[in-house]
Design a protein around this nucleic acid. Structure first.
Lengths: 124, 124
DNA sequence: TGTATATTTTAATAATTGTTCATATATCTA
DNA sequence: TAGATATATGAACAATTATTAAAATATACA
């Protein structure tokens, strides 16, 4: 419960307690730049979805086309395509065209590492 | 658009194309166990939120109590508490009580590594 | 024991996100 | 160039999730 003060109409309310001012200031000073934070949030969020994480791990074994992924995931190709676009916007996956078919793959080894570290963490 | 077949009432419909059967089968065979996948999704999802990621990076510098975090994030203590519970359920953070105050910290070095790897990835 | 502080919990609303459906684009082949 | 295949896109709905508000614990202190 916020602390209450005797106050009149002109009193500025301040319901924020500050127990450890120094810790708060340190956190503020060392906070990630908004840009980094947002990029990181979007990457974690992208992988924080069953469909997309399955896509990522499937692609970690080699490239697949949209309809392969749709068959594997038992989802519509449209649904898969939407998710792939999201992953592509974040440079987590890339594609190459061979005729009518678009083959998707992980964008680079860094993405693979990212997945591997996560998996190690979970398996301990 | 799914392929269509001439069919009667008893024909089993199959609108799923299978361009590269082998790739699909490999993906199916090597798919992560549901349990691992779910845990991993929940962890990525937990960090895929601005508030929680800020909390995680703040705690990476040292423990803080709920009201410190609320002041730092300019959020209600209730909101912070909700997010902390979520992080705690996933063993990403832990707490210790000192009197009335609960101090939160990252659960272990592994979590720190997880954050660090992500950050490196973003900063390239 | 009673009151204040620090945090948690529950329920409800508000915001976000995944999937579907319909349509559009891009490439191939006849 | 027409029709088929492979994928992408936009809009809408359904499901999920974050935040708020109010009430509930849990500890300290007088």
């Amino acid at each position: 419960m916020p602390r209450t003060f005797t106050e009149n109409e002109n009193t500025e309310r301040c319901f924020i307690r500050r127990i450890h001012r120094d810790r708060i200031e340190t956190a503020e000073k060392n906070a990630l730049p908004k840009r980094d934070l947002n990029r990181l949030v979007r990457i974690y969020k992208a992988l924080g979805d069953g469909t997309r994480l399955k896509i990522a791990f499937a692609l970690a074994e080699g490239e697949m086309c949209v309809c392969d992924l749709a068959a594997y995931l038992k989802l519509s190709e449209s649904a898969v395509s939407h998710q792939l676009r999201l992953l592509r916007d974040l440079n987590l996956v890339k594609n190459r065209r061979d005729g009518q078919i678009l083959y998707y793959a992980l964008d680079d080894d860094h993405v693979f590492d990212f997945l591997r570290i996560g998996l190690e963490h979970v398996r301990e």
